[in-house]
Design a protein around this nucleic acid. Structure first.
Length: 278
DNA sequence: GCCCAGGTATAAA
DNA sequence: TTTATACATGGG
């Protein structure tokens, strides 16, 4: 990865392709919006940027040297070469080559842990447009207002909210889960940042102490919020895809990049729904 | 109206 | 330990 910081922002040359649409609209995040020209805008840690991509060349518009190093380099996983990751996955599991080739340029974002946890609690039994709506109302209602939009509200802020205050989110039964998560995080009964290095089984167990967090939400939090690329969210679709499209493939076969593989499997199964049903 | 949405808590087999 | 049902809401 090479880069230079200009007046415009960070201009980066990668070894692998960065496909914005596949990355931002694949269901791993809910707060990036596409602009008319195909670029995307979003806010992370209260900082707004616009991202443009031309295959391996990307521009993070509106950032500076400091934020590039402290936020964007890790957020966009720029130090990982996804050609290398795909190569490792395909050597470990040749069955997946069709999936790896089906969707070029996906990256697994390193989102903020609390935002990921909260977002995936909201995602349960829900669809992406409505998840985005709830997350937007959460930010506009309780986040900090900046020049170009709102930040994601802290767990401390949400923990202060009564049931009535959360009602405008129209999150349904998930509102109580959001409250419980916010309380446990703000009281430090659960410390998400510890989970960057904790053994996976401990992380899962700890996360599932939160009401409304089951195996799926726990894995999503670990994969997308703590960048644990070995996490492996399994839902109904994944179960079906593993047993049909990939003839009995097991998660344990996928190694340290299981989470990346999972993203490709999910996409491939969505592209070929007729081959997924049992 | 009816069905479903990358689930989970709860109560029953 | 496994299997059924309710859960709030809104878009198709």
């Amino acid at each position: 990865m090479e880069y230079k910081i200009t007046e415009r922002g960070a201009e980066i040359k990668l070894n692998d392709v960065f496909n914005l649409k596949n990355t931002f609209d694949c269901g791993q995040c809910f707060r990036w919006t596409e602009n008319n020209d195909g670029s995307y805008s979003g806010i992370v840690k209260g900082k707004y940027v616009r991202v443009l991509s031309d295959n391996c060349n990307i521009i993070i518009e509106g950032t500076n040297e400091e934020d590039f190093h402290n936020i964007w380099k890790s957020y966009f996983d720029l130090d990982n070469d996804y050609n290398e990751i795909r190569k490792e996955i395909s050597e470990l599991c040749p069955k997946l080559v069709c999936a790896l080739e089906s969707m070029d340029g996906i990256r697994i974002l390193a989102q903020e842990p609390w935002e990921a946890l909260c977002s995936f609690i909201i995602s349960q039994n829900n669809n992406i447009p409505r998840i985005k709506g709830i997350v937007t109302r959460l930010c506009e209602g309780f986040g900090e207002k900046g020049e170009n939009g709102y930040s994601f509200p802290s767990a401390e802020r949400i923990a202060q909210c009564s049931t009535e205050e959360l009602a405008p989110l129209r999150a349904g039964f998930r509102a109580a889960y959001i409250s419980d998560a916010a309380r446990k995080i703000s009281e430090r009964k659960i410390v998400l940042e510890d989970m960057y290095t904790m053994p996976m089984d401990e992380c899962r167990k700890k996360l599932m102490e939160i009401k409304g967090v089951g195996p799926k939400v726990a894995e999503c939090t670990l994969l997308y919020g703590l960048h644990r690329l070995d996490a492996f969210p399994v839902d109904v679709w994944m179960k079906k895809a593993l047993s049909t499209l990939f003839s009995g493939l097991r998660a344990e076969e996928l190694g340290r990049y299981a989470g990346v593989a999972q993203q490709y499997i999910f996409h491939y199964s969505r592209l070929n729904p007729e081959n997924v049903s049992i």
